[in-house]
C-alpha cells in the first residue's frame, strides 16, 4: 500500500514537461517565422477587411436584391429567391446587417482556403495509400481536438482579429474536404479509369478528364459541408475578435441579455438555413 502511494507521489512530482515543450515550440515558431505569420496575417486581414468594406459600401437593400437575383439565376427557383429576400430583410430589420456581411466574407475566404488546401490533399491521398495512412490520424485529431485548444496558439501567432478567426475555422473545417475528396477519387469506377488509360490518357489527363469529373458530386457535397461548418464556427471566431454574427452572441452571453442573445442566435439560424438551401447540391434525377 505504502509503495503504491510513494509511486504515485513520484509520478506526480516528476511530470514530463509537455507544457514547457509546447511553449518552447510555439516560441520557436514565433521567433523564427514571425515574419511569415505577419505577412500572412497582413494579406488575409487586408482581403477580409476589403471584402467586408466593399459589401458594406453597397446599400443594404440593393445587396439584398442582388443576392436574391443571384439565387434565382443559380437555382432557377422563385420561391427560394423569395425566401432569401425575406430572410435577409429580417436580418436587416433586427439590426444584424453589418455582422452578417462580416460573417459572409469570413465564410467566403474560409471556404476558398479549405477547398484550395483540402481538395489537392484529398487527391494526393487517394493516389498514395501510404500518404493517406499518415494523414488520417492527423485529420481525426484536427476534428476531435476542442477548438479552444488551438485557439490559444493561433492567438499567439496572429494576435486578435479576424485572421485568427479565419485560421481556426480553416483548421476545424479542412479535414472535411480532404476526406470527401479522398472518398470521391478513390471510388471512381475502375472501368472509367481503364477507359481513360485505354485511350492513352496521361496521369494528368486521367485526373482532369476522368477522376475529378467522376468525383465531382462528392467534392461538391464537401463544398456544401465546408460552408455550413464554417458558419458553425462564427461564435468561436468572435471570441478571438473576428467580429461577425458571433460577436453579439458573445456580448449577450457576457452581459446576460436574453433579448439580444435570442435575436442574434436567430440571425445565425436564418443565415444557416439560407446557405443550406442555396448551396445544397440539386438532387440528380439519375
Amino acid at each position: 500500500m505504502k509503495v503504491l502511494i510513494l509511486a504515485e507521489h513520484w509520478i506526480i512530482h516528476h511530470s514530463i514537461p509537455v507544457d514547457v515543450w509546447s511553449v518552447a515550440l510555439i516560441n520557436f515558431i514565433k521567433n523564427n517565422f514571425q515574419g511569415f505569420f505577419d505577412v500572412l496575417s497582413g494579406v488575409l486581414g487586408f482581403l477580409l477587411g476589403t471584402t467586408t468594406d466593399v459589401l458594406k459600401a453597397v446599400p443594404a437593400l440593393v445587396l439584398i436584391v442582388i443576392f436574391s437575383v443571384l439565387t434565382y439565376l443559380f437555382k432557377k427557383s422563385w420561391s427560394l429567391a423569395l425566401l432569401v429576400f425575406v430572410a435577409l430583410l429580417f436580418v436587416l430589420n433586427q439590426g444584424y446587417w453589418e455582422p452578417t456581411l462580416e460573417t459572409i466574407s469570413l465564410i467566403i475566404y474560409a471556404t476558398i482556403a479549405c477547398m484550395a488546401i483540402g481538395v489537392p490533399i484529398g487527391i494526393a491521398a487517394a493516389h498514395r495509400p501510404t500518404l493517406y495512412r499518415v494523414i488520417r490520424p492527423v485529420l481525426d485529431l484536427m476534428q476531435t481536438l476542442p477548438t479552444f485548444v488551438y485557439l490559444i496558439p493561433t492567438l499567439v501567432l496572429f494576435g486578435l482579429g479576424n485572421v485568427p478567426g479565419l485560421i481556426s475555422t480553416v483548421v476545424f473545417v479542412v479535414p472535411t474536404p480532404v476526406r470527401l475528396t479522398y472518398v470521391g477519387i478513390s471510388n471512381v469506377p475502375r472501368q472509367l479509369i481503364e477507359a481513360g488509360l485505354a485511350f492513352g490518357a496521361s496521369p494528368r489527363e486521367l485526373l482532369w478528364k476522368v477522376e475529378i469529373p467522376a468525383a465531382m458530386p462528392t467534392i461538391l457535397a464537401g463544398l456544401t459541408q465546408v460552408i455550413m461548418l464554417s458558419l458553425s464556427m462564427v461564435v468561436i471566431a468572435a471570441l478571438v475578435g473576428a467580429g461577425g454574427l458571433g460577436e453579439p452572441v458573445v456580448e449577450a452571453m457576457e452581459t446576460v441579455q436574453i433579448g439580444s442573445g435570442f435575436t442574434s442566435g436567430l440571425a445565425i439560424v436564418v443565415v444557416a438555413v439560407l446557405l443550406d438551401r442555396v448551396f445544397r447540391p440539386a438532387k440528380e434525377s439519375s
Binding site: A195, L197, F199, G200
Partner: peptide, 19 residues
C-alpha cells in the same frame, strides 16, 4: 500512350462511357 492514342482502341463490356 502513343500506341493507345493512335494504334489501338477498346470497346468495353459494360460500355464504360463517361456519364
Amino acid at each position: 500512350r502513343r500506341l493507345r492514342n493512335e494504334a489501338i482502341s477498346m470497346v468495353f463490356q459494360q460500355f464504360a462511357l463517361l456519364p
